[in-house]
Simulated assay, not measured.
Amino acid sequence: MLLPIILTLIVLVNGSFILQIVKDFTKNRSELANEPGNPILMAISQFFIFFLSTFGISDFAIGASLYPKAKWVGDKKLPGTLNTACVVPVAAMALAYISSIEVGIATLLIPIVAQVVGAYISPRFVVKLPKNTIKKFVIAGLIVAGGLILAGKLGVYPSGGNKTSLQGFSLIMLGVLSMIYGALNNIGIGSYALTMATVYAFGLNPAVAFPIMMGACTFSVPVGSIQFVKLNSYSRKITFFSATFGVIGVLVAAFLVKGLNTNVLQWVVLGVILYSVISMIHDLHKEKAANLKTV
């Protein structure tokens, strides 16, 4: 009985976000058209980013690596863009996974509510952060995502168990951690890898990670993203292409491709993350040196 309600709420919550960005796109048509980025490259990139995200490869990590290097968005608007860009594709993922994978209702609902709370509180603080502070948070998020991928490749990542639900202290801890992950989403640290690691550590079936992390994100990320839209702290063009071509990537991955071997792709993403972290740290040092010269 609760499942149809959850699916209906996904449509309603994400539908309100879509109405918000359509209103914002219409109001700011000239800004949308003048934002940097080749439309063809953006369409292709969003298709593949969310195609891979459907298999658990962090779209935040790839986006945080790609968007600044392509000069599609500045550091100040990067956290908001990472959030707004994933709203509609993640809603499509959630609708596909929540209805097809068994998970205890409380184990699904508590992380969802907790992430919504975390996501609602943090955007108003994020937009006030200095550019370099945001960059440092993004670097931290990339290191966390890369570390978890590497841990999995080296066999030291928790492998999970057979449980489909949690009770007692474990369930409370999942809720507390999910609230933190919801807040971290808004500073550019994606919650997918963190949620997956938590689910595995608590002995849940690895498949359970997908409805939990996508369900939590599909409710929490729109809440935070609407705040970023109101604060004009996101890239409209990237969000537009993710809401269209990103969704196509999700649908291809969810319904047309079965059992994709992502082993090689994970190594490629790990390499991209490493390059991005080194590059961002180098940029921070250059900016610091330049500031010292002007003093």
Rank of each mutant, 00 (worst) to 15 (best):
K163P: 06
Y234D: 03
P4N: 03
R29H: 10
A70N: 04
A201E: 00
G37A: 06
K71A: 01
T262N: 06
L171V: 10
F51H: 02
I101K: 05
S170V: 10
V257L: 08
L108T: 06
F47V: 05
Y67F: 15
G146M: 04
N263W: 14
F125I: 13
I18M: 15
K286W: 00
S233P: 13
T294P: 00
Y234P: 04
F55Y: 15
F48H: 04
I212D: 01
G249S: 10
S100L: 07
L171F: 10
G175T: 11
P158N: 01
K131V: 11
K258Q: 06
A119H: 11
L12Q: 01
A193P: 15
P4S: 04
V144E: 00
I273L: 05
A140I: 06
V199T: 01
K237N: 13
A92T: 08
D24E: 08
F240L: 15
S58R: 09
T107Q: 09
V257I: 13
V138A: 01
K76S: 12
A254F: 05
M42C: 02
F25E: 03
A85H: 08
A209T: 15
N162G: 10
N205S: 07
G56D: 02
G161Q: 07
V90Y: 04
V11R: 04
K288E: 12
S122C: 13
S178Q: 10
I105T: 05
K69C: 00
I98Y: 08
L177I: 15
V73C: 05
N232A: 14
A290L: 08
V22M: 15
S276P: 00
I44R: 13
L82R: 10
V247C: 01
I180N: 00
I110W: 15
V199M: 01
K258E: 05
F125M: 14
L284V: 04
Y157H: 09
G190L: 03
K135C: 04
H285M: 03
T195Y: 10
V272A: 02
A64Q: 10
L3N: 10
P36Y: 02
G74S: 09
F60R: 00
G246D: 06
V127P: 14
